[in-house]
Computed example of a mutant assay.
Amino acid sequence: MHIVMAGASGLIGTSMSAALRNAGHSVATLVRRPPANPAEVRWDPAAGILDPDVLAGADAVINLSGAGIGDRPWTRRRVEELFSSRLGPTRTLVQAMARAETPPATFISQSGSGYYGDAGNTVLREDAAAGYGTLAQICVEWEQAALMAPPGVRVVTPRTGVVFSRSGGALGKLLPLLRLGVGGPFGNGRQFWPWVTLPDVSAAFLFLLDSRVSGPVNVAAPEQADVNTIITALAHALHRPAALRVPAPVLRAVMPGLGEELLLYSQRLEPAVLSAAGFRWQHGRLADASQWVAVKDGTA
C-alpha cells in the first residue's frame, strides 16, 4: 500500500512508520517544515493547506497529529492547543480527501481512551457512551472531524490507551523513578489504565489497514489492570520496590486538571472489536509487557 501519514515524528508515529515500511508499504509523511527527503511532503494544517494531489495514489491516510497531552501544564492556552492541534490537521486531511479526484479507501484517525472519561470499574466496549472532561471532549470532536471524510472512505478511530514504551510516552517520567526504586502508584491505585505496548499499537494499525473494520476501536491489551497492579508488575520486572505512593490531593495540586484526568481517571477498556476481528497481541499479558519494557539497559 501507499500510505500518507500525519504526525509521523512522535513516539507512536516514529514506531509506526518504521513498522509500515518494514511490512513493505510506502509511506509519505506530512511535515510543517521544508521536506528533508522525497518521502516528506510539506503542509500547513493550521491554515488548512494541503495539496489534494498529495493523496493521489494513496491507499490510506493515517492521522496521528496532536500536541502531547502530558507534556505541559494545562493552562487555558495549552488546552486550546490540545484541541486545535488535533482538529486542524484532521479537518485539513478530510477537506483534501474531498477535493481529491480519487480519495483514499481508508482513513485511520487517532483518538484516545480519554473518550470515556472517568468510568470506574465499568467495562468499556466500543459502544459505550462518551464520558466527561477535557480529554473526552477532545476525543469526541476529534472523531467527529474524522467522520466528515467523503462517502466511500472507511473511517477508523482507534481509541488508544496508555502506551508502554521503553523510553518516552506515558511511562517516560515514571520509569526512571521506578528504576531508582523511588516510584509508586498514583492515588489509591484502584483506577484502571487501558495499557498497550508500543509494538502492539503499530501492529494494531497495520491490522486495521488490511481489515474491514470501521468506526471506533479500543486499542488496548486484553488483560485489564488497575494502577496498583501495573506499577507492581513494572517494579517486579525491574527488580525494584514501588512503595512510594503519590496521594491524589498532591497530584491535583501539582498537576491541576492534567493529574486528575491523565492519572486518576479510570478506564477499563475491553478491545472487543480487535478481538472479534482476530487480532493477536505480542504483549497481551501485563507480565510479558513489563518484561519487554524492562529490557532497556539489559534490566530484566
Rank of each mutant, 00 (worst) to 15 (best):
F207K: 09
P241G: 03
L262V: 13
I69R: 12
R179V: 01
A47S: 10
V94C: 12
R190E: 09
A56Q: 08
D127M: 10
A204Y: 04
G66C: 12
T122E: 14
G24D: 01
T75L: 14
L11G: 00
A242L: 05
R245D: 02
M1N: 01
L274V: 01
Q224G: 11
F164A: 04
I231N: 04
G133Y: 02
R190D: 06
V41H: 14
L135Q: 02
T75W: 13
P45H: 03
H2E: 09
L93A: 07
A289V: 07
L87F: 08
A130H: 08
G278A: 11
T106Q: 12
W193P: 00
P45D: 02
S113F: 10
V213R: 12
V293P: 00
G181W: 01
R78I: 12
N37P: 02
E40V: 01
T102N: 15
A39I: 01
L87I: 15
I62L: 15
R159D: 01
H239W: 06
E143Y: 04
G278P: 02
V254G: 07
P158S: 03
R21Q: 15
G24T: 00
S275W: 10
V94A: 13
V293M: 01
R252F: 02
Y115A: 14
P104M: 08
S15H: 12
R179E: 03
V246Y: 02
S26W: 05
P38G: 07
G187N: 06
L30I: 05
V219S: 04
Y265E: 04
Q267A: 10
F192D: 02
L251D: 00
R245C: 02
L244H: 03
G10I: 02
H239N: 09
W281E: 02
F164M: 11
R78V: 13
V273Q: 13
S109F: 10
R33P: 05
A58N: 03
T106V: 15
R78T: 12
V196W: 04
L30V: 05
G278Q: 07
R212E: 14
L30F: 09
N228Q: 05
R21C: 07
V153I: 11
G259Y: 04
R245P: 00
V27C: 09
T14R: 15
R166P: 00
A47R: 14
E101S: 14
Y132M: 12
P216N: 05
P34Q: 15
G120Q: 13
P89G: 11
Q137W: 00
A146N: 09
S165E: 01
L264Q: 08
A56K: 13
F207S: 10
L238G: 00
E101F: 10
E270T: 13
V140I: 15
V155S: 11
T92F: 11
G13P: 05
G114R: 07
S65T: 14
G131A: 04
R78Q: 14
T134Q: 12
A170K: 03
P185M: 06
L264I: 09
A98V: 03
R42N: 00
F205A: 05
G183Y: 00
S85D: 06
P103Y: 07
A67I: 13
L264C: 09
F164S: 00
F186K: 08
V246T: 14
C139V: 06
A272G: 14
G187I: 06
V162C: 07
H236C: 11
P185A: 11
A248Q: 04
D53A: 15
V293K: 01
L82F: 07
V79K: 15
F205Q: 07
E260H: 11
M148Q: 15
